[in-house]
């Protein structure tokens, strides 16, 4: 399958197959006016298959979201058809308004104006916990 290259924009590559749509939704890419290509199950020598997202605009993506969903992705910044920067992603220490706590007893469930904050509790197992009630994400 062939998808046009982009002139100025961002390619999120090496997304674990199956996680692309979650990233697409959490980054809110559906609200962008520019062209966005979402490629599912693209063949990959390294990974077998992978998902790819190409965004045809010079926007800033929330690397905390990428790090949380799939820290193995690479983000390529494209300028004038060339990759000018390759970013690797790290697990973010804190996620703000990315997830909502599922604990019905959590204060964030009743006080609507509170930011939903999760902190990295266990790096090895990629476990995040709600700042307020410590429930696992």
């Amino acid at each position: 399958m062939q998808v046009d290259t982009i002139k100025n924009g961002i390619v999120i590559d090496h997304i674990t197959a199956g996680k692309g749509m979650k990233i697409y939704n959490l980054l809110g890419l559906d609200s962008l006016e520019c062209s966005v290509a979402f490629i599912k199950n693209a063949p990959s020598r390294k990974m077998g298959k992978k998902d790819i997202i190409k965004i045809d605009a010079d926007i800033v993506v929330d690397t905390a979201i990428l790090g949380f969903v799939d820290p193995d992705v690479t983000v390529n910044i494209i300028k004038d058809n060339k990759i000018v920067e390759k970013k690797t992603i790290e697990l973010p220490e804190k996620l703000v308004d990315v997830l909502k706590c599922k604990n019905p007893r959590c204060i964030s469930m009743t006080e609507q104006e509170l930011p939903h904050i999760f902190t990295l509790a266990d790096k090895e197992n990629r476990v995040y916990r709600c700042l307020y009630c410590e429930t696992k994400a």
Binding site: N103, R105, C106, I107, S108, M109, T110, E111, L114, C130, L131, Y132, C133, E134, T135
Partner: peptide, 10 residues
């Protein structure tokens, strides 16, 4: 004292 978890932190 609060019935909601995390309220004293807030």
């Amino acid at each position: 004292r609060h019935p909601k978890e995390g309220a004293p932190l807030v």
